[in-house]
Amino acid sequence: MSIDMEVDADGVATIVMNRPERLNAMDQAAYEALSEAWIRVRDDNDIRVAVVTGAGEKSFSVGADIKSFLTTGPQPEEFFKTQQGQILNRGLEVWKPIIAAVNGYCLGGGMTLLFATDIRVAAEHATFGLSEVKRGIFAGNGGTQRLLENLPKAVAMELILTGDPITASEAERWGLVNKVVPADKLMDSAYDYAARIARNGPLAVQASKELVVRSRDVDLATGLRMEQAMTTVLKTSRDSAEGPRAFTEKRPPRFEGR
């Protein structure tokens, strides 16, 4: 499996999980390549937003390729390497917005990846599920930890305890995805979100995402103080001057991300 990545002139990165013949199931090499892709999104100042999708028309990703992991069981010494091979849904902090374009099956690890994205667009034929319990395991890599952030408790528990999937329309009804569109409109819809985000101040966008995400773990007083601190940091940037200047001059701002 390959993880393909391109970045356009507007700073929109497209990441494609490319193994359609196996429904974009992920082996160890794919997870490592995906980790490298997310690190590039995090560290490349020319990237403002990323879109992640699967190759083909059938699947976003069905998660881990179980066959490839059958002969490589977990080793005790690996347990303590907590920062090794970090991915978006396993602790890697990426404050640039991530948009998921779900083009079919979104199961297991594909679902936990979805949980770690910010905006989700789904094709009408997409299905969503955490089927791990049907195989005697559970949904790791954030599957149990992010479930209640994404779905009401009763729906979340049904999904993770039965292992049964839900449709795209059900996912939209419960707020798991932002929008459901015809398959041929999927990428256009995802790129529309990306373009609207990319036009905004990159530092302000990243600050907004980080503050919202960290608000889950702090009390209100601490969160408000974090906002004050982040405002102080952003006031030192060129973009903080460019935004008001462009507004008064009645022109689109030219943000640099600096």
Rank of each mutant, 00 (worst) to 15 (best):
L114T: 12
L107H: 15
I166M: 15
G91A: 00
N150I: 02
A101S: 07
L130Q: 14
K96H: 06
N89P: 00
G108E: 07
D164R: 15
S131Y: 12
L113S: 02
E149F: 07
T72H: 15
A116N: 01
L88R: 15
F69L: 08
M157N: 11
W174I: 03
H125N: 12
T82W: 05
L92H: 09
A126Q: 09
L113W: 04
N89A: 01
V133M: 10
A122Y: 09
A126G: 09
M111H: 06
I119P: 00
S68F: 04
A126E: 08
D65R: 11
T71Y: 09
R135Q: 13
M157T: 14
G175Q: 02
A55V: 01
L113V: 07
L151H: 08
L130K: 05
K153I: 08
A156D: 03
Y105W: 15
E132M: 11
L88K: 10
G143V: 12
S68Y: 09
W174H: 15
L107I: 15
G163E: 12
A64I: 11
E57M: 01
I160R: 09
P165Q: 08
K67F: 10
K134G: 03
T82R: 14
E93W: 10
A171C: 06
S131K: 10
Q86D: 01
T71D: 11
V62E: 03
Q86G: 11
D164G: 04
G109N: 07
R146Q: 09
Q86L: 15
I87H: 01
F60E: 07
